[in-house]
Simulated assay, not measured.
Amino acid sequence: MKKGLLAATIVSISCSSAVFANQACDETVLHGYMGNIKDEMQAMSSDVKSGDNEAAAQRVNTLITYFEKSRAETPFKFTSENLQGNELAQQQEKYTKVVDDTIVILKNLENALQTDNATDVRKWLGEVGGQRKIGHGAFKANC
Score class of each variant (00 low, 15 high):
residue 31 H to W: 09
residue 64 I to E: 09
residue 126 G to A: 00
residue 97 K to F: 03
residue 139 F to V: 01
residue 81 E to G: 01
residue 93 E to K: 13
residue 82 N to V: 11
residue 93 E to A: 15
residue 116 D to V: 13
residue 15 C to F: 14
residue 49 K to N: 12
residue 135 G to L: 09
residue 91 Q to Y: 15
residue 17 S to C: 04
residue 87 E to R: 08
residue 89 A to M: 05
residue 14 S to R: 07
residue 97 K to Q: 12
residue 37 I to R: 06
residue 34 M to S: 07
residue 55 A to T: 07
residue 59 R to I: 01
residue 19 V to R: 02
residue 20 F to W: 13
residue 136 H to G: 08
residue 47 D to K: 00
residue 84 Q to G: 03
residue 35 G to D: 14
residue 95 Y to D: 07
residue 37 I to G: 00
residue 86 N to Q: 15
residue 102 T to N: 05
residue 78 F to E: 04
residue 107 K to A: 14
residue 26 D to Q: 12
residue 76 F to N: 07
residue 55 A to H: 09
residue 136 H to V: 14
residue 16 S to M: 13
residue 96 T to R: 03
residue 85 G to L: 06
residue 61 N to H: 08
residue 42 Q to E: 11
residue 4 G to F: 12
residue 136 H to D: 08
residue 18 A to I: 13
residue 37 I to F: 01
residue 78 F to A: 05
residue 39 D to P: 00
residue 119 T to K: 13
residue 122 R to T: 13
residue 66 Y to E: 13
residue 50 S to T: 12
residue 127 E to Y: 12
residue 105 I to T: 15
residue 27 E to C: 02
residue 19 V to Y: 11
residue 11 V to L: 13
residue 109 L to N: 07
residue 4 G to L: 15
residue 9 T to H: 06
residue 28 T to P: 02
residue 140 K to A: 13
residue 32 G to I: 02
residue 74 T to S: 10
residue 138 A to T: 09
residue 33 Y to S: 04
residue 1 M to N: 11
residue 27 E to I: 10
residue 89 A to T: 09
residue 121 V to K: 09
residue 120 D to R: 04
residue 52 D to F: 10
residue 91 Q to W: 12
residue 19 V to E: 01
residue 133 K to C: 00
residue 69 K to T: 08
residue 116 D to I: 13
residue 121 V to R: 09
residue 60 V to Q: 08
residue 80 S to Q: 11
residue 117 N to T: 04
residue 59 R to P: 00
residue 8 A to Q: 01
